[in-house]
Nucleic acid binder design. Structure first.
Lengths: 147, 147
DNA sequence: TATTGTTATACTCTATAACTATA
DNA sequence: TATAGTTATAGAGTATAACAATA
């Protein structure tokens, strides 16, 4: 006799499907995981990469300013920048007795080029799932959502 | 003499502004934090709430099926459901010697009503920042992004 | 006194590996 | 042998509180 299986196995109703918060969370988690895998060979995590790219765009900026820009608390910026400094990617100059002026080392600039390319590659992969005007509208909506 | 301050204080350039992954992550983090604060008085976290609502919509479903629906690994479903059972919100019946049939207790049903209302309230708050057609388009795009 | 960064610590969510019990 | 659930553990990211050093 046949095994009578899977007749309604994946037939669960998802009551969260039409929630923006839920879809946002799922999509974000998926993309961050993808990006994480893409960045893994560089030894950097997505958050570290974001800090590295902000420093490249703002040579000599302060640690706290980066955190403010990226929504990372001062407390959490400490191990983040420490790891970049330890990895030889970032220099911690002195701006002031109490603040650091962060800049990229030569290795940091090379790494920034590499990871920037990987991020571009990931964005391109996303675009293959979404037509360009939809992508732009999406970015616009998300930015507006955050104010 | 005036203190000559803040002349270029918040003037950092954000090179990630036009990245979908970045905006998605920031928006998601913001919304989840908001929802978390809104849910705090109930003693439940966002993830637990999502499980509770899935059980309400699928009485008697299995633990693993919920995880599959929500993208939560079996390993992580364990403490999640354990906490709901311990809180008297969920009953773990037996479906099979090896699987559990999850259902809501009376308290669980009441709690589901409460948190469902809070989630609705949060979604409404989001909508006030986004016109309805934009919201619908956003949900559609996010859902499509995930396939 | 306010600012910048730091330490210590805890929480939430997720991830891997190895295991038990049942089918 | 495959399936459902579990245990132990680690990691990434974020949070609060208390503190030191400098301005």
């Amino acid at each position: 006799m046949a095994k009578q299986r899977n007749i309604e196995a994946p037939a669960l109703v998802n009551p969260l499907e039409d929630r923006l918060g839920y879809q946002l969370r799922r999509a974000s988690a998926l993309l961050m995981a993808e990006l994480g895998r893409l960045l893994a060979p560089t030894g950097l995590r997505p958050t570290e990469v974001s800090v590295l790219l902000v420093i490249r765009a703002n040579e000599g900026c302060q640690q706290g300013a980066i955190g403010e820009l990226l929504g990372i608390k001062p407390t959490n910026m400490v191990p983040l920048t420490a790891r970049l400094v330890k990895g030889g990617l970032v220099d911690r100059g002195r701006a002031d007795g109490r603040s650091h002026a962060l800049s990229l080392t030569a290795a940091g600039r090379a790494m920034a080029t590499t990871v920037s390319r990987l991020v571009d590659q990931h964005e391109a992969a996303i675009q293959s799932r979404l037509d360009p005007p939809t992508r732009d509208h999406l970015i616009d909506s998300l930015t507006r959502l955050r104010r």
